[in-house]
Write a protein that binds this DNA or RNA. Structure first.
Lengths: 358, 358
DNA sequence: GTGAAAGCGCTAACAG
DNA sequence: CTGTTAGCGCTTTCAC
């Protein structure tokens, strides 16, 4: 049962004190080259790796940051994290990932766990969380940056995009194609400021035209293809169905396309559909999904930059707004002529039968 | 600047020794209820959380396991990890995730990093790695389980499936549809036993019919839609093109469908395509992608079980073989009549022009 | 440039 | 059931 080599073992073999070994590891410049090399050989020979706990205890620093994301089963978070991790690794910092499953309490617990593990900083998704959590963060003097969200007057450092503006833009594009009966399949807005902002953005655009976005035309669905499909089928089953469905994200958009097809409607001839995020599947769908491109990788990189800046002095950092871009693809077309123009959602037009399967 | 509360602070406030506080935290049953409650109140009041480093140092245990996966940007790993994490969390164990980017050296480095952090165990993907790595693992007495792979005579505990058998099954299905000019777009086989086994499985099935799987009909592509698309276009540009393309995974399968469409071929009338993994996009494609369903979540759960069993005593565990299932969908059809039946790859048949876009 | 020594916060014998 | 007391492996003054 071989014993894990310790600093002391290295010191003994190299014929120096543990302090010197520690210096070789942490400030090589402060050690005479010959000594240094002797130590390095000993390290090599023993296959020594510093004990993380010991180091954390003595230095009160872990070179570790934590990220809490809703779920890994979601390409958009994965991609951003990957970039974040790469940049942190370049700076010698390890990333710890935890998931909250879109649950506020679980997120709070994960934050606590990560902090208990001594992470030097945190990356958190969105800004919707209890004041108590922010107070806890402040009490622990834990630096953090919010991602996936950006507001001009956000109280905390964040790097993200303006979900409200982007969603409003989508709705305006859809309006530009002549649609007036517009529905939305939103993500779950509870504890989720991104989903909420997107709803509000769409609503604002519609309001500008005197249109409403309310109950039967506004459905919340969780982040699954099937949920999007079911929601779309519900929307389209109604008489007075929408001619366009704006989806809170691409997964719901993909689901909506499946649902529309299952209900016998053609996209975009019978109904237009848009998504949000521009993940891979958006391009694979037929027709391809019109969506909002979010540069997840760049967001990850910027988050890394802010976080690294944040941990050193008490240097203040400024939030970063990432630009998004609407990508027009085949799933968005002009409003079908049979649909009433300019009417509100309740003008009584009926089409009891869909066009039927293609 | 508030000082992070320590065990001693709690002990002082509760009027007990640090040992008692420690017991309350680690073995509450061994403390008299009244004392326990006093301590718990102090913990509460101070918002105390144990210092991870201190604990790791003293107990030589971290209640943490690490997983090294190729990349997070891949739904199949994400899903398995999610399940793994959930089950570990139930046992009070935290999961640390690191990525290797499909690079052997980087994987070795990540293993070392995780071990340095004191993880109690490791989850590793596949079994292809240098002996030195296995030796290192053994030297550190680090328990680990391999996932995503299974062989009857694998030397290490693993929970996965038989990539060879599953791939052979795919090829036999394809043969069953009358195809004889069969090509494969494989994942990168270097340092990847899963990709390699899949190639060998397909090759074995073809060999049984006296067919070969070689150079122009065997292309390796990295894990991206575009790579799959490019590979498919190359395959289909050739005269004497394949009537079926077996892909090493669904991403390549999706790419192949895009490529085939771009080249003006219809799926499955002109060319059949299969994937492997059964990720979401398989069902979203039109036609849907025939593929091998891999129960990733179950694999994650089982890995958690083995790992938890492995860390307690020196209890031996037995590897687990997860069943996979071929899912037949629209992308696999009968071989077009124009294609030569039963001939080898080089029988000289030519079709200079594809059918052209639909 | 290097060594001696004092902790960092916690757990685990061992006493009592 | 509770307290005393060594460390765990490392960093970091402070001397030399």
């Amino acid at each position: 049962m071989p014993h894990r080599p310790s600093l002391e073992d290295v010191a003994r073999i190299a014929g120096v004190s543990t302090a010197t070994v520690s210096r070789v590891l942490n400030a090589p410049a402060r050690v005479r080259p010959e000594t240094r090399e002797r130590v390095e050989r000993a390290v090599e020979r023993l296959g020594y790796t510093p004990h993380f706990g010991g180091r954390a205890l003595a230095s009160n620093r872990t070179d570790t940051v934590g990220a809490v994301i809703p779920t890994m089963e979601n390409a958009i978070f994965a991609r951003g994290l990957q970039a974040l991790q790469e940049d942190l690794a370049d700076a010698g910092v390890t990333l710890l990932v935890a998931t909250s499953n879109y649950d506020k309490a679980q997120e709070a617990r994960q934050i606590q766990t990560l902090l208990a593990r001594g992470v030097d900083g945190l990356v958190l998704v969105g800004e919707a969380r209890d004041d108590a959590v922010y107070a806890y963060l402040a009490g622990r003097a834990a630096p953090f940056v919010l991602v996936w969200t950006w507001r001009a007057d956000c109280s905390w450092p964040c790097v993200g995009f303006d979900n409200f503006a982007a969603a409003r833009d989508v709705a305006e594009r859809v309006l530009g194609f002549g649609h007036r009966r517009i529905a939305m399949i939103a993500g779950v807005t509870r504890d989720n400021d991104r989903a909420r902002s997107r709803v509000q953005g769409v609503r604002a655009a519609l309001a500008d035209r005197g249109l409403a976005l309310e109950a039967p035309f506004l459905i919340e669905a969780d982040y699954r293809i099937e949920a999007g499909s079911a929601a779309a089928q519900r929307l389209l089953a109604d008489t007075g169905r929408p001619t366009a469905i704006i989806c809170g994200n691409d997964v719901l958009g993909a689901g909506a396309m499946v649902g529309a097809r299952a209900a016998g409607y053609r996209v975009p001839q019978d109904v237009s559909i848009t998504g949000f995020d521009d993940i891979d599947i958006a391009q694979l769908l037929d027709p391809a999904l019109s969506t909002v491109h979010v540069p997840h990788r760049r967001m990850g990189r910027m988050a890394a930059k802010l976080l690294l800046a944040l941990r050193d002095p008490q240097g203040t950092v400024t939030s970063v707004c990432i630009e998004t871009e609407f990508i027009e693809r085949g799933s968005l077309g002009v409003s079908p002529p049979s649909a009433p123009e300019g009417g509100l959602g309740d003008d009584g037009s009926r089409q009891s039968d869909p066009h039927g399967p293609l």
